[in-house]
Design a protein around this nucleic acid. Structure first.
Length: 564
DNA sequence: GTAGGGTTAG
């Protein structure tokens, strides 16, 4: 009773006073620790079951231990518990098997989960849901859907597991389609869990209009007081470019937790509002809210994007010494980005060499793009050669490599890369830009010139181009990857997807409204210049969210101050 | 006395 009411100390007190303890007493206290988020205590006191009382764990104990391993994410110990369970007299228990399915699923091992799932004698909705959730959050779309369809009776939790799993693995469109199917089937969506998932999907898709509709639903259902829902809304508005609304919702929240603070700090950072992010952090600390590892990712990111190297380093150190958070690869990548962006390339390379993690492709890529930005061709080539040796799978890395070699005029390497990309196993995701006009959503791929409004778009871009040149625009063709004549290079830049999308927006969006473009890659340097020109020529605010951050173009300047 | 769904990260 004390454990389930969140009074773990009282539970421990009674437990310690028991004149005689049986397995039920033990499971009660193990569960109390699990519920109080003290799963490490659950695991550490487990051995005393033998030493103090000479008892052998039963299936109830195993289920509690597995749950503890799941919430701590300690798969190695989880496997040890699994082994003990298998050889125990309770090795057939279906509840423990379900908890193991959940453990493997949550630890990103859906195949291990499936092996256990198939051994469950009587599968109930808990086992099915755990397995489906595991596939969905690992991005195993077809496996998740197939199992979902085979499941005899689906309930709200199963739908939520599937949909939120897809949101978490970045499959926003699939999650949205499933949500609509769920509504068609008449499943009630009056539930804060499913609502927060769909808000997450809107954020994922940068679908502001959809997000606003769900926000309306939140108000109608009275879920504004739900912490999870409000946190999701703050994140959604920030990700959909409306930082001010995000801030407004944040300001009006009656209860805020570390996720609320972190969401608004990360949002400020992504919009280039570093001062605000740092101010919010001071406020957070002053009210006694403890930042977590994600908060520091946001803070260092904020510093990185405005060149506050000293402050960023200070925060990195404070994270370790003041908060006892040991830096993850994420943090090192942020640190490296902080240093390399502002030109401290040598120190950045030193971080890569001395950090206790094996640098992944993204880490090298951060350094590589800084080399290009700061014109350190020699170091760029050295790192590019090294990266090429690692045979990266991420296609965007090849684009970066091409950039380096093309910038250095090493066309032989460029064509070698192109061949690699053509024959490679991976599918290269082409650059695209997307504009959301509410009921209509248009995607433009780089170089695509076959759109129905092609002539109007071309005409508009041509007109703007002439005006830009009058104002001193010179195309920067170093962003073109192929060895071509100057004129052809300029033509390639001309059809970069963000420009086409902006032109389309100027033609179709309601006059006077902000034009919001989402791009899957980083905006190229030349397009960045062009968008600044366009914003002043047409006197419209243009917002581009690229792979990295937001750019707000207005009156010829960008919120990133050309440092991105 | 045991197992399943929600928010933040380069």
């Amino acid at each position: 009773m004390y454990g389930k009411c969140g009074l773990v100390q009282e539970a421990v007190h009674v437990f310690d006073e028991l004149p005689h303890r049986d397995l039920v007493s033990w499971v009660s206290i193990l569960t109390a620790y699990n519920q109080a988020n003290l799963s490490h205590v659950t695991l550490s006191i487990f051995p005393t079951i033998f030493t103090l009382d000479g008892l052998q764990p039963d299936h109830f104990v195993f289920a509690s231990l597995v749950k503890a391993c799941t919430s701590l994410g300690v798969i190695k110990q989880g496997k040890q518990v699994h082994a003990r369970f298998v050889v125990s007299p309770f090795g057939d228990d279906d509840v423990v098997k379900s908890s193991l399915v959940d453990m493997y699923a949550k630890c990103g091992l859906p195949d291990n989960a499936r092996l256990v799932f198939d051994l469950i004698t009587w599968k109930n909705s808990v086992s099915w849901t755990a397995m489906i959730s595991g596939y969905a959050r690992s991005g195993r779309k077809s496996d998740a859907i197939e199992l979902f369809q085979r499941m005899p009776v689906k309930n709200l939790l199963t739908w939520t597991a599937l949909i939120s799993g897809f949101v978490q693995s970045g499959n926003g469109f699939d999650s949205l389609n499933l949500f609509m199917e769920m509504r068609r089937e008449g499943v009630s969506i009056v539930d804060p869990f499913i609502i927060s998932s769909i808000i997450g999907a809107s954020a994922n898709l940068v679908a502001l209009k959809l997000g606003k509709q769900i926000h309306g639903l939140v108000i109608a259902l009275g879920y504004e007081s739900s912490l999870f829902v409000s946190n999701a809304l703050v994140d959604m508005y920030a990700k959909c470019s409306d930082f001010l609304v995000a801030k407004d919702i944040f300001d009006n929240m009656l209860i805020r937790d570390v996720v609320s603070w972190t969401s608004i700090i990360v949002g400020a950072a992504q919009h280039g509002r570093a001062e605000e992010a740092l101010f919010l952090y001071d406020e957070m600390v002053s009210i006694g809210m403890k930042p977590n590892e994600v908060t520091f990712v946001g803070l260092i990111y904020a510093c990185s994007h405005v060149g506050l190297v000293g402050k960023g380093l200070e925060l990195f150190n404070s994270m370790i010494t003041d908060y006892g958070i040991s830096p993850s690869l994420h943090h090192y990548t942020c640190l490296l980005d902080l240093l390399s962006r502002s030109g401290h390339l040598g120190e950045a390379e030193n971080v890569i060499k001395t950090m206790p993690f094996k640098p992944d492709e993204a880490t090298w890529a951060a350094l590589l793009s800084a080399c290009k930005r700061h014109g350190n061709t020699q170091m760029g080539i050295r790192i590019a050669d090294h990266l090429l040796g690692l045979k990266p799978e991420d296609p965007s890395i090849y684009i970066l490599l091409s950039n380096v070699y093309a910038g250095a005029g090493m066309w032989e390497n460029v064509s070698k890369l192109r061949k690699l990309m053509a024959t490679g196993e991976f599918k290269r995701e082409p650059g695209y830009s997307c504009i959301d006009l509410g009921k209509e959503r248009q995607v433009f791929y780089a170089g695509e010139t076959s759109h129905a409004l092609r002539d109007e778009i071309f005409g508009l871009l041509k007109e703007v181009d002439a005006e830009m040149r009058k104002r001193g625009y010179i195309p920067d063709t170093s962003f073109v990857l192929h060895d071509l004549e100057q004129q052809e290079k300029e033509r390639q830049l001309f059809w970069h997807s963000e420009r086409v999308a902006v032109a389309y927006g100027l033609l179709k969006a309601v006059p006077g409204t902000v034009i919001l473009i989402v791009k899957n890659l980083r905006v190229c340097g030349d397009c960045h210049t062009v968008l600044k020109f366009i914003s002043s020529i047409v006197k419209r605010e243009i917002v581009v969210r690229d792979a990295n951050r937001f750019h707000h173009f207005q009156d010829g300047i960008c919120s990133c101050s050309d440092f991105w």
